[in-house]
Design a protein around this nucleic acid. Structure first.
Lengths: 154, 154
DNA sequence: TATTGTTATACTCTATAACTATA
DNA sequence: TATAGTTATAGAGTATAACAATA
């Protein structure tokens, strides 16, 4: 009885055996995530947006007026670490903190016009990146992969 | 025509819209990887092995006598950052640096007896972790997921 | 000249505690 | 009392440059 579950895993360099690692979900996930993040970062280099910052702009664009706690919770980032990200995006004039009318402790986050323009450009680059990996996955590969990944998160 | 590719994605808290994010491979990969690493770390808490350290022990066990450059290359870790990991594992008496007979610049890495014992325990815990997520994926889910992930890496 | 292991360093990401101003 | 934003801080992980010993 042969164990062929990792038949398609790339071989390690120099004939080093990876043993059971390529058959482990976590190991495969991590290697795939590193490859795709590396491509994402280089693809969006011209707009200088790393994955977390891109996601932040998407969320704010989809839900204008949310406060920092709400956006950071949606992203799975702690609000304490989110402050630096908002500072950075605001310094680049991509988003703005507007004083909330309802609650004077919080800010309503909105994209600036410059932010919307940059996000449009970023979306185009991201689409190229996405298509590149969808092609790697073959016909229906992406449609099979996504539900499996979300089952892991549930 | 409806876009249902992210039908199985968990909803964001508080009715916040994630927009197109759940349909992006990189976003789904990252969220899944965080969940699985979190479970891995807690499952292997009693042996105090994080994913990179577990993988390191596996590689050394599979290929005893490799030097640091070879192991770090197999893991995709830079040899400069690998030094700290070897220091740590050696301090815990799980591996040893033996002077290489062929090349006096390098060390041959080997598991200690204590390292083998701990790795056996770690493998059992990892198997529980793996089974937990295989169950989440449903019948044949794992067998579908792994080749898809490795296609992304190719 | 090139390579192995190493140190120093820096940047990103992540995690916790504690403060302030509001609620 | 509790919450929103913030600061300080510390730990991982990751990246580059440079050095001594050896090839």
């Amino acid at each position: 009885m042969d164990n062929d579950e990792d038949r398609d895993a790339p071989a390690a360099p120099n004939g080093v055996s990876l043993g059971p690692l390529p058959g482990f979900i976590g190991y495969a996930l991590r290697r795939a995530q590193l490859v795709i993040f590396d491509d994402f970062i280089r693809t969006l280099e011209t707009v200088d947006l790393r994955p977390a910052y891109f996601s932040t702009l998407i969320i704010i664009d989809e839900n204008p007026g949310l406060n920092q706690s709400e956006v950071s919770a949606a992203l799975g980032v702690q609000r304490t670490n989110f402050v630096t990200m908002v500072d950075h995006l605001e310094k680049r004039n991509l988003i703005e903190r507007r004083p909330s009318k309802k609650d004077r402790r919080s800010y309503a986050l909105h994209l600036t016009e410059e932010g919307r323009t940059l996000l449009d450009k970023a979306r185009q680059l991201q689409a190229e990146h996405e298509a590149r990996f969808a092609r790697k996955l073959g016909p229906n590969g992406r449609e099979q992969l996504l539900p499996l990944l979300w089952k892991l998160v549930e």
